[in-house]
């Protein structure tokens, strides 16, 4: 379980996050929503200590910021928004997730690391979509944007984290890839009962896949709780500054957010 206690974070002097208090439920997927500049990605950076931050971040009661770099990497994995098109074989890229478990003098990954990477590639459904080519031969720059995201998720899963952070994993993807990426995350999270924190702009996708939502506005918590508790017309209109309609999904009854225009 992730607990954020009075987390504030600064970007070059100016505070972007102010006094964030929040906790997730174990094994649940939590979406972070909010307008541009509200501090969604900054919150992920603060959790990873990529930017100076105050307060405390606890996972299973332990302070994340007091852990060593390797231990932190075994506890939290992050999938960035953009995965660079590197000429790195997919299998090697995924195996890099085993780094926190290696000794500093170990130059090569073991057969067990390779088996773990292959398993995670299968888990995210990527091994079947490589046109039958060996992931040791196919390189990252030969994959589509969605496949690169899946490879990055597989790498993050190789870290066997207790908390998975995803920074807009569906940005720039078509609808089919958006759904396959989020399904892979949801399946992996439920398989290993891992907490997942997902920054997402598409409120309807957040409603479809997340159990809980954290809505940020101007660096502060505007609302937090179950999806139906957060996706309220008045709150969203105030946060996004535009007219909205809230409906229901005809099949599963989840909230749908549509523009008034």
């Amino acid at each position: 379980m992730l607990q954020l206690e009075h987390v504030s974070a600064a970007y070059q002097g100016g505070f972007r996050l102010q006094d964030i208090c929040f906790e997730t439920q174990e094994g649940r997927m939590t979406g972070i929503i909010g307008p541009n500049g509200s501090g969604k990605s900054t919150l992920l950076k603060a959790i990873c200590r990529d930017i100076p931050a105050q307060g405390s971040v606890r996972i299973q009661g332990r302070n994340l910021w007091e852990m060593s770099v390797a231990e932190r990497a075994r506890t939290v994995a992050i999938v960035p928004q953009d995965i660079e098109k590197l000429p790195v074989p997919v299998l090697d890229f995924v195996m890099m997730g085993r780094t926190p478990f290696k000794k500093w003098h170990q130059l090569f990954y073991s057969d067990a690391d390779k088996a773990s990477a292959m398993e995670k590639l299968q888990q995210v459904g990527l091994s079947g979509s490589l046109d039958g080519r060996d992931p040791a031969l196919r390189t990252l720059d030969q994959l589509s944007g969605g496949e690169r995201q899946l490879a990055a998720i597989a790498r993050a899963l190789c870290q066997e984290p207790r908390l998975l952070l995803l920074d807009e994993p569906t940005a720039n993807l078509d609808l089919a890839h958006q759904i396959s990426v989020l399904q892979a995350v949801a399946k992996a999270a439920s398989d290993v009962r891992m907490d997942t924190l997902l920054v997402i702009h598409d409120i309807n996708l957040a409603s479809a896949f997340c159990h809980n939502l954290l809505c940020l506005s101007e660096g502060k918590v505007a609302a937090a709780g179950g999806t139906s508790e957060v996706l309220k017309k008045d709150l969203l209109e105030k946060v996004y500054g535009t007219g909205l309609c809230i409906g229901r999904h005809p099949l599963n009854g989840r909230s749908l957010v549509l523009p008034e225009v």
Partner: peptide, 14 residues
């Protein structure tokens, strides 16, 4: 090669 920040996220003490 993946970037300093990514290397740190993977457990490298940069």
């Amino acid at each position: 090669n993946l970037g300093e920040q990514t290397a740190r996220h993977l457990g490298v003490n940069t």
